[in-house]
């Protein structure tokens, strides 16, 4: 799969000649603003920001950093907590409106600060979107974090549930296998596993070579080992890609092939690997995705934005394999796609 990585300063060049619709998610994380601000001088058709029902002080502060041109055209849409049918309807409406940018335009969805369940809902909506929209170029933007808090990221699990649209097809005759893609949230991972009380546990960590920096890998490795220690030597291990969602999909496909099990996948690492899990579950409808709502995020020091944006073509990763899928061709003025760090 062709993944493009650009620094935020190069994003402008990529989309300069296009009319774009932008969807993003506000957050206490600064990176939602950083990526979008770099596009502020472009020809923006619509700029939609999903928000929580109540904005924290840290989130309000990030709005102060939003480019005034974006503020002027911003459309805020409130999402209810809990990833329920109401949230689904709201996201779907916003996504479909974004596609009204037309075949000459581009839909950009900055997924950097989406909650994972919301991101998966966006993915399922894109997977079901009308075939006529698939001629439009649609890209997911993901801004790396250069640092994550070395203290904690989230705590106090509220509940464990499935993500809307990813209920799977659990059968009474099958045992349960939970597949956890560990990130930096140990207790959240443990709570999900404990809630399902599976017969089998598979615990995965990100590939070392793909980690942004050694510190992040080291923490991931530490949490991975700690989680494994809870469930003993019987749990299986695996590694997954942090940069390529198609590779993640294929990894999960190779792991989840035993017909004796109902598989529940819990993606808890970065958004790219979460997208990979979503792609896998959309292709294999018997896969359930488990998610935990948490009460509290470490809003004060969750992450530090990096400089590199990963660009994923929805046309390539999602639509090309589906019926009626078309790979949209970028306009000729667009710069060539190349890996640039």
């Amino acid at each position: 799969m062709m993944t493009t990585v650009l620094s935020t300063s190069r994003l402008l060049d990529r989309y300069r000649s296009r009319r774009i619709s932008i969807l993003t998610r506000s957050s206490f994380e600064e990176r939602w603003v950083k990526c979008i601000n770099s596009l502020s001088s472009l020809n923006i058709s619509t700029f939609t920001v999903f928000c929580s029902e109540v904005k924290s002080l840290e989130t309000l502060k990030t709005f102060e950093d939003l480019d005034h041109r974006l503020l002027a055209i911003m459309s805020e849409i409130t999402l209810p907590a809990g990833g329920n049918a109401e949230a689904y309807g709201i996201i779907r409406g916003a996504v479909e409106r974004a596609f009204e940018v037309g075949v000459d335009g581009t839909v950009l969805i900055d997924v950097s600060s989406f909650k994972r369940d919301e991101l998966l809902i966006v993915l399922s909506i894109l997977g079901e979107i009308h075939p006529s929209y698939r001629k439009i170029n649609c890209e997911l933007l993901y801004l790396e974090a250069s640092e994550m808090s070395d203290d904690w990221l989230s705590r106090n699990t509220l509940n464990v549930r499935t993500v809307l649209g990813y209920s799977g097809d659990p059968r009474q005759s099958k045992k349960t296998c939970v597949v956890v893609m560990v990130g930096h949230e140990l207790i959240r991972a443990k709570d999900i596993i404990d809630a399902y009380e599976p017969s089998k546990v598979m615990i995965g960590k990100g590939i070392k070579a793909e980690s942004i920096n050694p510190e992040l890998y080291s923490r991931n490795e530490q949490f991975y080992r700690e989680l494994k220690s809870y469930y003993g030597s019987s749990c299986e291990e695996f590694e997954f890609s942090l940069l390529d969602p198609i590779k993640v999909k294929n990894t999960l496909k190779s792991l989840c092939g035993n017909s004796q099990y109902n598989y529940v996948v819990a993606p808890l690492n970065n958004k790219i690997s979460c997208i990979g899990a979503g792609l896998f579950a959309l292709e294999n409808q018997d896969i359930q995705i488990g998610y935990s709502d948490v009460l509290e995020y470490n809003r004060k020091s969750y992450s530090v934005p990096g400089s590199n944006v990963h660009i994923l073509s929805v046309n390539e990763i999602l639509w090309v394999d589906q019926k009626g899928g078309v790979v949209a061709t970028p306009s000729e003025e667009a710069p060539s796609l190349e890996l640039e760090i």
Binding site: S52, V54, S56, L57, A81, G82, R155, N156, L158, N159, V160, R161, A195, D293, L295, E296, Y297
Partner: peptide, 27 residues
């Protein structure tokens, strides 16, 4: 047994009408 910040408790509302599923309603 970690204590959530008061502001988070105020901002997160879990309805008792929703499923049981081991939820803790009042943090």
């Amino acid at each position: 047994l970690v204590i959530p910040e008061v502001s988070d408790i105020q901002n997160n509302f879990v309805s008792k009408d929703e499923s049981s599923l081991h939820q803790i309603y009042d943090y």
